[in-house]
Write a protein that binds this DNA or RNA. Structure first.
Length: 107
DNA sequence: TGCTTGACATGGG
DNA sequence: CCCCATGCCAAGC
């Protein structure tokens, strides 16, 4: 797989509990700011294999991206259990929970 | 090799 | 706030 994909995996694994990152942000830190859609694929295909904290990834608006109602509720529940509060039970305050990785920590 | 597929992002109307 | 078009790009077939 591409080096980019591996970085995405590592970055996601480094998101601390109680914090979140957006697809675009992850793509940017991984080296390709415009590859947000690849982050989506990684979550779909590697979450289980690499035990990724997939629920800590949301879209740029602070909304949960899952379309399926059940899945959507499940992710919101997981985040809530880590202390992430939802405004109007609908979205997250990114200014408060967005995580900014240490730029010099990657390999 | 070429085409399709997304849990996206962003700007306009 | 909603809907739409457009840009993007690795992976799978």
């Amino acid at each position: 797989m591409e080096a980019f994909t591996l970085k995405v995996i590592q970055i996601i694994k480094n998101i601390p509990s109680g914090k979140v990152m957006t697809y675009g942000q992850i793509a940017a830190y991984a080296g390709s700011a415009k590859a947000a859609r690849q982050v989506v694929r990684v979550l779909h295909s590697m979450s289980e294999k690499y035990k990724l904290p997939w629920h800590r990834v949301v879209n740029s608006k602070g909304h949960i991206a899952i379309k399926d109602y059940e899945g959507h509720a499940f992710q919101r529940m997981l985040l809530a259990s880590e202390g992430v509060n939802f405004i109007e039970d609908d979205y997250i305050d990114l200014k408060k929970y967005l995580f900014y990785p240490d730029l010099f920590l990657e390999s």
